[in-house]
Design a protein around this nucleic acid. Structure first.
Length: 369
DNA sequence: GTATGCTTTCGGC
DNA sequence: TTACGGCCGAAAGCATAC
């Protein structure tokens, strides 16, 4: 059993970098990739921005209008998102990265874990060379930079990848794990969100070092056996999560901004029926059935409300989807007085169609063939 | 008390 | 000072089961 060597590869400011590659003449300017909602000239939000734009405070999530204001005296480039193009680029890069890994796990469109333990014989020097080679290859074939973190597990690799970017490479060897982790805030650990961090701070735990020094048994008392054990192990750099292929998406959703804010169920249903059609189209390509339907509404004050329903048995029926979405919106409107601004539909809890058959037959007591 | 599953919210890009 | 997308997975909260 040799030591594990794990890499996390993160494609830098991915959408904006794709746009720079397509049109290199914009590379020295702020590049802002936007999602326009169509409601008015500049309504919408920033999806991602290159590092030049970030120097002006332009980053993912801010309104387009605000981004334009921050860049009003600058020669900046604003572009609409082009997901098809990014998907294409991502697919090619993932193929390159996969070829360098013993095991591969893609996370979203621009990130992947590579287990390279065997490939580099458990040697971190070799892993660093391999990472440079992968970076060079991605650069040569796809003209894109990425940032890589290397560590003895996914936890360390992920945190390491954030240390230097863009175009960074950070290696944390097993003997460096303790000094690497100790000073970080507990929120650096996956699994520690705002609430958990607050709870830990109240217990006198701010840094990973504090967490590591905290009595493991007391952690278990405070967070339960699973979480408590996980936190204790993570604090000393232990993480046994394997790098494994993701079987597929966990949810498919479509959301859209309404022309006008409304609480008229018929107007909303008109829009969500269309969204259901799109979700269904995507679903049909994947050959999946779903057990759960969810809806989401962004209200006038930008607060987000959601409702969902899980069925006894999986289905792939478009009419069931539409009917359920409508009922959920009806319920949501009863429980809020605000008008809806954006509405969305999603399906999740997937079952592959063959397995659905299997589930049914085993339920009925037939022997499996 | 803890595990599990479902629902809702949060947060990154 | 306001302004505001679409999609995903993770986190959190709760009810019920064990």
């Amino acid at each position: 059993m040799q030591a594990r060597v794990i890499m996390l590869v993160d494609l830098d400011f991915f959408f904006a970098q794709c746009e720079e590659r397509r049109n290199p003449s914009i590379r020295d300017k702020p590049v802002v990739v936007c999602v326009y909602s169509g409601r008015s000239e500049d309504s919408g939000a920033v999806s991602t921005a290159n590092y030049i734009a970030r120097k002006y405070g332009v980053k993912a999530g801010i309104p387009i209008y605000l981004a334009k204001k921050k860049l009003k005296d600058v020669d900046a480039v604003f572009l609409p998102v082009d997901h098809e193009f990014y998907d294409e680029v991502s697919e090619k890069i993932m193929r390159i990265l996969r070829s360098h890994a013993d095991r591969f796990e893609q996370v979203g469109i621009d990130e992947a874990y590579l287990d390279v333990s065997r490939k580099v014989n458990g040697d971190f020097e070799q892993a660093e060379k391999l990472a440079k080679k992968a970076k060079d290859e991605v650069k040569a074939h796809e003209k894109l930079t990425c940032s890589i973190g290397i560590g003895p597990n996914k936890l360390i690799a992920k945190i390491a990848s954030d240390i230097k970017k863009p175009d960074g490479l950070t290696v944390v060897k097993p003997e460096q794990v303790e000094s690497f982790l100790s000073p970080l805030p507990v929120s650096s650990l996956i699994g520690v969100g705002r609430k958990t961090e607050e709870k830990m701070v109240a217990m006198g735990i701010r840094t990973v070092r504090d967490l590591a020094e905290y009595d493991a048994q007391r952690l278990i008392e405070a967070f339960g056996r699973n979480l408590g054990t996980y936190f204790h192990k993570a604090s000393i750099g232990i993480d046994d999560e394997p790098v494994q292929e993701r079987s597929g998406v966990e949810s498919i959703s479509r959301i859209s901004t309404l022309k006008k804010n409304t609480r008229d169920l018929e107007l909303i249903t008109e829009k969500t029926n269309h969204l259901c059609d799109q979700v269904y189209e995507h679903l049909a390509q994947s050959g999946l059935s779903f057990k759960s339907v969810g809806i989401v509404a962004v209200m006038t004050d930008m607060s987000i409300l959601s409702r969902s329903e899980t069925f006894e048995n999986p289905t792939d029926d478009l009419e069931v989807l539409k009917k359920t979405a409508k009922e959920l919106f009806e319920r949501l409107l009863k429980e809020s007085e605000l008008e809806a601004r954006r509405v969305g539909v999603k399906v999740f809890n997937f079952v592959k169609k063959q397995e659905e058959q299997k589930q049914l037959t085993s339920f009925l007591g037939f022997p499996e063939s």
